[in-house]
Design a protein around this nucleic acid. Structure first.
Length: 452
RNA sequence: GACCCUAUGGUCUAGCGGUUAGGACACCUCCCUUUCACGGAGGUAGCCCGGGUUCGAUUCCCGGUAGGGUCGCCA
């Protein structure tokens, strides 16, 4: 039988990065084995659920490219789904739980206790054959020594997580439960429940947790805990996926950057690490840069235009050829798309604001005549392309008896407002002679030139 | 508190009963260069501690310590 795995998040309004990795590992295993990846929404806690919260999960998985073979098609619990084992929302499966509880009750494996129903937990240690961790013997804790039984149906009639999780896995024929290690201690309960229902439990693979950079537990409020934040910051999903693969799993041959197809080919449960991993934002950023540099042009333009729009810069007001030429000078020079508006906003804004410190350093009195001479040289140019601009600038520098740098830096700051950015010659070409000269002229009036 | 998992540079990791302990990110130096980024060449830095087993432990066993997890009428 082909593996059937599932990702079973509860809609809390956000998708934890660790949850995203759990989904990824399940998906990779299904794709590697030709199995089935199922998405099930654990929305038993009605008070906290909303369609929006489910949409966050669906959109997050879609952004990462993790398509599911069975599961909901929309965030509507009563809406359409695909797959034969639905419904895929626990809120729609209540009869199943009721029926199972009645069965347990009638067989004396569960009993009523103050209006709730408790499962008669076995008193002996339970051995978990974990595909990642190995055999784990789970003894009873001191609290469980006193009362090992646990509630499966609340007094208000609502079933509890342990119960529904097991019933759904059972009824959906889940063969491998790949989930966070935080569930390892709960697994004894789940195995006991499977046995009570007379079936063999699925295979378990508990994957290590993702911690903050400082080693503390990554919880909801920590920076970078929400998958959405990566989308908002302008990360590429392929970079996030690649990075997540490397947290807690290793291809064992020193490969870092890998295509998804290659990862699917090589991914398997035995290579999953046993220890928790800290989230290394810098390394993610490095991968992001790697992927950003080799983006196909069309996708690059689309993402760039979107990034500008988010920053309130409407690039559609400019000719398409101009926008593309401007973006071409930026490709490969920045990592996050959220950096782009600050990096290249000068192309789409006439108002240039100089950082006070930079202006103080570069707009010094001795640079004024230099910039004036450069302006004149540019003005005399018939063709204003990068090659001609470079030639004119270098010639002017030679006449002044200095290196090109003495002109490059004031010119760059004058025209872009930044001490760094795209290639100066190419940027001037894109900007055009008229705008370039106007900006130099305006910079010449900067008060810093008069100081000292 | 009890129970469970884990432990290789700052971080992610490879590795092994005998290795100059390998790679990547980050960091430092130099080169390239119009800035930044990229690229190239170097560099700093690691087997948690204590006992065993063994001719020999980073590697196997035990203990400790540290980190993480679980013990809900949350999921």
């Amino acid at each position: 039988m082909k593996p059937r795995v599932r990702f079973a998040p509860s809609p809390t309004g956000y998708l934890h990065i660790g949850g995203a990795r759990t989904a990824l590992f399940n998906w990779l295993y299904a794709r590697h084995t030709g199995g089935t990846f199922i998405l099930r929404i654990e929305d038993t806690d009605a008070a906290r659920n909303s369609q929006e919260a489910v949409d966050v999960i669906l959109n997050g998985l879609r952004w990462l490219g993790l398509d599911w073979d069975e599961g909901p098609l929309t965030g509507d619990a009563t809406g359409a789904s695909k797959g034969e084992r639905g419904p895929y929302f626990q809120s729609q499966r209540k009869e199943n739980y009721q029926r199972r509880v009645v069965a347990l009750l009638s067989r004396g494996l569960a009993y009523e206790h103050e209006g709730a129903v408790k499962f008669k937990m076995q008193r002996e240690p339970v051995t978990i054959h974990d595909l990642v961790v190995g055999d784990v013997v789970r003894k009873l804790t001191d609290r469980e020594e006193v009362d090992p039984d646990f509630v499966i149906l609340r007094s208000d009639g609502q079933p509890v997580f342990h119960l529904v999780n097991v019933i759904d896995d059972l009824e959906m024929d889940i063969t491998h439960v790949i989930r966070g290690e935080d569930h390892l201690s709960n697994t004894a309960k789940h195995i006991a429940l499977f046995q009570a229902f007379g079936v063999k439990p699925p295979h378990y693979a508990h994957i290590p947790l993702i911690l903050n950079g400082d080693g503390s537990k990554m919880s909801k409020r920590d920076k970078g805990a929400s998958l959405t934040s990566y989308l908002d910051d302008g990360f590429l999903p392929e970079a996030v996926v690649n990075y997540l693969c490397l947290l807690g799993w290793s291809p064992k041959d020193n490969r870092e950057k890998m295509s998804l197809a290659e990862t699917i080919e090589r991914f398997d449960l035995p290579q999953i690490l046993r220890h928790n991993a800290r989230f290394d934002y810098e390394k993610l950023l490095w991968l992001q840069g790697e992927y950003a540099r080799e983006l196909a042009d069309d996708r690059f333009y689309e993402l760039a235009v979107h990034a500008f729009a988010k920053a309130g810069i409407d690039t559609n007001k400019f000719p398409l050829a101009y926008v593309k030429a401007a973006l071409d000078t930026c490709k490969g020079k920045f990592k996050l798309f959220s950096e782009l508006p600050a990096y290249a906003g000068f192309y789409f804004r006439d108002e240039i604001i100089y950082n006070a410190d930079d202006a103080k350093k570069v707009f010094v009195p001795e640079n004024k005549p230099r910039l004036e001479k450069l302006r004149d040289a540019f003005a005399a140019l018939n063709t204003f392309d990068a090659a001609s601009i470079e030639l004119a600038l270098k010639e002017t520098a030679k006449q002044l008896g200095g290196k090109p740098g003495v002109l490059i830096h004031p010119c760059r700051l004058a025209v872009t407002g930044n001490p760094n950015g795209p290639s100066l010659y190419h940027l001037l070409e894109v900007l055009g002679k008229e705008k370039s000269l106007a900006r130099i002229e305006r910079a010449l009036g900067n008060s810093q030139f008069a100081v000292n």
